[in-house]
Amino acid sequence: MNIIDHLFKKGKNKLSIYFTAGYPKLNSTKKIIQILQQSKVNLIEIGLPYSDPMADGLIIQKSNKKALKNGMNPDQLFSQLQLIQNEIQVPLILMGYYNQFLKFGEESFLNCCKKSGISGLIFPDLPLEIYKEKYQKLFEKYELYFICLVTSQTPDNRILLLSNISKGFLYVVSSISTTGQNKDFETDPLIFLNRINNLNLSIPTLVGFGIANKNSFNLACQYANGGIIGSAFIQSLDENDLEGSIHRFIASILY
C-alpha cells in the first residue's frame, strides 16, 4: 500500500509543503525535508527546478533559477534523497515538468524515484490521454502514484474523469492563476470548493495555489482534506537560519 493512502486514513487538516530542490543551496534539500518532518508536516512536495516553469509565478521561477545555478538536477536529487531515505516517514511527492521526465528516460526516472523513497509524481503539463496511453502501466509497475490537478475552470465531468485517474489525492487548484498569486483566496474559490464537495469524490483532495497563511489554510481545510503551501513557504526560507525560519513558518500556519 502506498503511504499516501495511510496519511488520508486518519483525519483531515493535512498540511503539505512544496519547495524547490536545490534552493537556497544545493544541499538544502535534505535538511529542509528533515526539518519539515520534525515540524509535523504531513506531506512534502519536492519541485524539480526547470528552465521554463510555465505554470509557476515569480517566486518559484526565481527559486528554480537559483537551484539550477546551484547545480540541482534529477541525479543530484535522487542521490541526496537516498541518503535520508531510512529516516523519512512523511510521503514525498516529486513535481516536475514533462520534458524532464521524457529526457531522463521515463522508466529510469520512475525507477530512481522508487529507489529514492518517492511515493507520487506530479507533471502538470503531461496530458491525461498521454499518461493513460503511455505511462499508467509503468507507474503501476513501480508502485508510484500519478496525481492530477483540477481547477475552477474544469467542468464537472472532467473533474470526475481526473479524479478517477488520480491516485492518492486530487490536487485542487484554488484560483485560476499561476502559483503564488494569492489573489482573493477568501472569496472566489469557495464557490468552486463547494462544487467539488457536491461531487462527492471518493478520492481525498488537497487545495493548492495561493494558500499563504493560517487563514487560507484553515479555509482550505474546511472544504478539503488539507492544503498545499508553496510560494509563501519558499519566500519565508532564511538561508542563514533554515531551521529557525522553517519552524517559525510552520508554527504560524498550525498554531
Partner: peptide, 21 residues
C-alpha cells in the same frame, strides 16, 4: 536539438541532458 517539449509542443528543441532548455 533533440526530441522534447517546448511551449507545450513535442518537437525538436535545444536542451541539455536533463531537459533544461
Amino acid at each position: 536539438g533533440s526530441k522534447g517539449v517546448i511551449h507545450g509542443s513535442l518537437t525538436f528543441v535545444m536542451q541539455d541532458k536533463y531537459g533544461q532548455i
